[in-house]
Simulated assay, not measured.
Amino acid sequence: MQRTTSDESRDPGSPFPVRKRVAFSQHGGYVAGARSAQGALSGRLVRLASNESAFPPLPGVMNAIHSEEDAVVRYPDNDASELRSRIAEHHGLSSSQVAVGNGSLALVEQLMHVLVDPGDQVIVGDPSFIGYSSVGKVAQADIVRVPLSGSSLDLEAMAVAITDRTRIIFVCTPNNPTGGIVGALELESFLKAVPTDVLVVIDEAYREFVDDPRAANGVDFLDRANVLCLRTFSKAYGLAGLRIGYGLGDPQLIAALRSVQLPFGVNALAQRAATLSLDSQTELEGRVATVVSERLRLEEALTDIGLDVRPSQGNFVWIVLEEDTASTVKALAARGVLIRGYGHGMRATIGSPADNDAFLTALTSVRDRTGE
Rank of each mutant, 00 (worst) to 15 (best):
1 M>D: 11
5 T>P: 02
8 E>P: 01
9 S>D: 01
10 R>Y: 00
11 D>V: 04
12 P>Y: 06
12 P>F: 09
17 P>Q: 01
18 V>M: 01
25 S>C: 05
26 Q>W: 10
28 G>N: 11
29 G>H: 08
38 Q>W: 08
38 Q>K: 07
44 R>V: 11
50 S>G: 10
60 G>S: 12
62 M>W: 14
64 A>G: 12
65 I>S: 14
72 V>S: 12
75 Y>W: 14
79 D>C: 09
87 I>D: 02
87 I>S: 00
88 A>F: 05
89 E>S: 14
92 G>N: 14
96 S>A: 15
97 Q>F: 08
97 Q>D: 13
104 S>K: 11
105 L>M: 12
106 A>K: 05
114 V>I: 15
117 D>S: 13
117 D>V: 08
118 P>N: 08
119 G>P: 07
127 P>R: 05
129 F>V: 08
130 I>C: 04
130 I>P: 01
135 V>W: 02
143 I>D: 06
146 V>T: 09
148 L>C: 05
149 S>R: 14
149 S>V: 07
149 S>D: 10
152 S>F: 02
154 D>Q: 10
156 E>A: 13
157 A>M: 12
160 V>N: 13
161 A>T: 06
166 T>R: 03
167 R>M: 05
168 I>Y: 03
169 I>S: 00
170 F>C: 03
178 T>N: 08
180 G>F: 01
189 S>Q: 15
190 F>A: 04
192 K>H: 14
193 A>K: 14
195 P>Q: 07
201 V>W: 02
202 I>Y: 00
207 R>H: 13
207 R>T: 10
217 N>G: 10
221 F>A: 07
221 F>C: 06
224 R>K: 15
232 T>G: 00
250 D>A: 08
252 Q>E: 08
253 L>W: 01
254 I>F: 03
258 R>E: 15
262 L>I: 11
263 P>N: 06
265 G>K: 01
273 A>C: 12
276 L>R: 04
277 S>A: 15
278 L>E: 08
280 S>P: 02
284 L>C: 12
300 E>Q: 15
302 L>A: 11
307 L>F: 07
308 D>N: 14
312 S>I: 02
317 V>D: 10
323 E>P: 03
325 T>K: 05
326 A>K: 12
327 S>N: 11
327 S>H: 11
330 K>D: 15
331 A>F: 03
332 L>S: 05
333 A>Y: 04
334 A>V: 06
335 R>M: 07
341 G>H: 07
347 R>N: 11
348 A>M: 09
349 T>S: 15
350 I>G: 04
352 S>L: 09
355 D>M: 08
355 D>V: 05
359 F>A: 07
359 F>V: 07
364 T>E: 10
367 R>D: 03
367 R>C: 00
368 D>L: 05
369 R>Y: 03
370 T>C: 00
